[in-house]
Amino acid sequence: MSQDVEPTNTDEGTPALPPFNAVAVREVDPSAVAEPGLPEGDTISAAARHVFGNPEAEICIVEFGDYECPYCAGAAPVLHEVVDSSEGRIRLVFQNFPLFEVHPFALTAALAAESVQATSGNDAFWKMHHKLFKNQNRLTDRDLRMYAEYVGADPDKAVGEAAQEYAPLVQADYAAGVASGVSGTPTLFIDGAPYSGVVDVASIRRATNGSASVTPRRRFFGLG
């Protein structure tokens, strides 16, 4: 399926969701999109399924990423080091933005990762997350099954018809990204503000301390 994706909406150059779900991203009301990685009372928002680090950390980095994107693979260890060395100040939220028109396996990889989260939890998800990035040239269904089994998840849920159960989750992330102006990967937001700097440890650390690389806070997922 991953090599036969056809866009459902190409007007004005806006990316569209593939036919695994018929709802077009341009029909999504941006004001209805949840705030990714931001607290709702004492809980984590529904959009923030994949949280690395302290869920109550004061600073939130949101990444929109694609498992077949080499730049995302390069960003992953950087972001994890920033979180690991922050003494609980920073958390990372990953949201799917598969560039399915140029990366034929990105969508099925995202579905497999979602299946791991659903069947085996957050720790297994992050193991799968790293496994996918380290093996970007091997993302066939056979590979995805093997990776799911390796991290202790259900391989039968990771591919094919069973994986389509998780398509709405991928679509919600993708639509949220489009609504926020995401057009490529990785795209980072720090506490709701777009990050435009270099993705290395020193630069991200400066940005989380108020560097000019973070665009002044603007409306993003309902934030003022």
Rank of each mutant, 00 (worst) to 15 (best):
M1H: 06
S2I: 07
Q3E: 12
D4K: 04
T8G: 07
T10Q: 11
T10Y: 12
E12C: 03
T14N: 13
T14P: 00
P18W: 13
A22H: 03
R26I: 11
E27G: 05
V33F: 15
E35L: 15
E35W: 12
P36N: 01
P36S: 04
L38V: 04
E40Y: 09
D42G: 05
A47P: 04
R49V: 02
H50W: 10
F52M: 02
N54E: 13
N54G: 00
I59G: 04
D66A: 00
Y67C: 05
E68C: 02
A73C: 01
A75Y: 10
A75H: 00
A76P: 00
A76G: 01
V78T: 14
V78S: 02
E87S: 07
E87H: 09
G88D: 09
L92H: 01
F97R: 05
F100M: 05
E101H: 05
V102E: 14
V102P: 03
F105A: 06
F105W: 14
T108C: 06
A110G: 10
S115K: 08
Q117S: 06
A118M: 07
A118V: 05
S120N: 13
D123E: 13
W126I: 04
W126F: 15
K127R: 14
M128F: 11
H129A: 08
H129R: 12
K131M: 15
N135L: 08
N135P: 04
N135T: 05
N137C: 01
L139F: 12
T140H: 10
D141F: 13
D143Y: 04
R145I: 01
M146N: 06
E149P: 00
G152C: 05
D154Y: 12
P155D: 03
D156P: 00
K157R: 15
A158N: 02
A158K: 07
V159D: 10
A162H: 14
A163L: 00
Q164T: 08
Y166R: 01
V170G: 06
A175H: 11
G177A: 10
V178D: 01
A179E: 04
V182A: 09
T187M: 03
L188P: 01
D191R: 08
A193N: 09
S196D: 08
S196Q: 09
G197C: 02
V198S: 05
V199Q: 10
D200I: 02
V201Q: 10
A202V: 08
A202L: 06
S203Q: 11
R205E: 11
A207E: 07
N209T: 02
N209Q: 14
G210Y: 15
G210C: 06
S211V: 08
A212R: 05
A212C: 00
V214M: 06
V214Q: 10
T215F: 11
T215A: 14
T215L: 12
R217I: 03
F221D: 00
G222A: 09
